[in-house]
């Protein structure tokens, strides 16, 4: 590590620690009222053995939604992007459809989804729609990034459309797709949580909203903290992957 980098790392660490200390102090001295608990209280609450099964169940349910939404949404977005790349005339129509679906407020999709599927299917579907949007946008632009020289080469070598897509366009799009993998992590969580707000029978979102309504302050903050830490870790992991892909592909 260069000294500049290690310096900025240390500064950043100090920033995060200061933030956590501020959280603790504001909570301890009630600077923001009774609904802001100190960090230590939240951590103690989180690690209370009696509460563990509650958190475990909710976390498992929400993570399942996030996982299903992420994988299906990502795959769907990619496939749709490939279709619109391979069949140029369908591209404008698909672009609009994706944009319109993205513009619908996710809570407004919930009643439709509850009818079409079920209340418990709503979180993964909303999550998947959000993730699919990011993948579609990133992949359609990534698939067009191959350089003119490479394109000419494939024409001269008589490559078919499909093999150009698979051997040139898709590899060129991998860095953009890796970025989408990273950027869609918080979106997957938002989708799952909002989906649960509308009427799932379990999950962190349900925990958050019922804790809000019943003034269970430590529970509310704990559930939010779990969600935030999970999203942050997954984001960090995919940032690493993104860097690896970028290094490998150029």
């Amino acid at each position: 590590m260069t000294s500049a980098r290690s310096q900025s790392f240390v500064l950043g660490l100090i920033g995060v620690v200061l933030f956590l200390i501020a959280w603790e102090v504001i909570g301890t001295y009630r600077l923001a009222g009774l609904t802001w608990p100190p960090l230590s209280t939240v951590l103690v609450f989180l690690t209370t053995p009696a509460k563990l099964p509650l958190f475990e169940r909710a976390t498992a349910a929400s993570f399942a939604s996030v996982g299903i939404g992420y994988v299906c949404g990502g795959a769907g977005g990619l496939v749709l992007a490939l279709v619109s790349h391979l069949i140029a005339p369908v591209r404008p129509g698909l672009d609009r459809l994706v944009a319109v679906i993205h513009a619908i407020p996710s809570i407004a999709l919930a009643p439709l989804l509850i009818v079409l599927a079920s209340a418990d299917a709503t979180p993964p579907v909303i999550s998947g729609l959000g993730v699919g949007y990011v993948f579609y946008v990133a992949a359609t632009s990534g698939l067009a990034t191959a350089g003119a020289a490479h394109r000419d080469l494939f024409v001269v070598l008589g490559a078919s459309r499909l093999s150009t897509a698979l051997r040139l366009d898709l590899p060129s799009a991998l860095p953009a797709i890796a970025s989408a993998m990273k950027l869609s992590v918080p979106i997957a969580f938002i989708g799952a949580i909002i989906g649960e707000w509308f009427g799932a029978s379990r999950g962190l979102g349900l925990l958050i909203v019922s804790a809000m309504q019943n003034f269970q302050i430590p529970l509310l903050w704990s559930a939010v903290l779990i969600t935030a830490v999970a999203s942050l870790s997954m984001f960090a992991l995919f940032s690493l992957l993104e860097r690896l892909v970028q290094e490998r592909m150029r």
Binding site: T35, V185, P186, I187, F189, I190, I193, I194, G205, I208, V209, A211, M212, L220, W221, V224, T227, A228, S231, L232, F235, A236
Partner: peptide
């Protein structure tokens, strides 16, 4: 903060 679902802060 950009890598966490900020929407979940709404109830807080």
């Amino acid at each position: 903060f950009t890598s966490i679902p900020v929407v979940t802060l709404i109830p807080i």
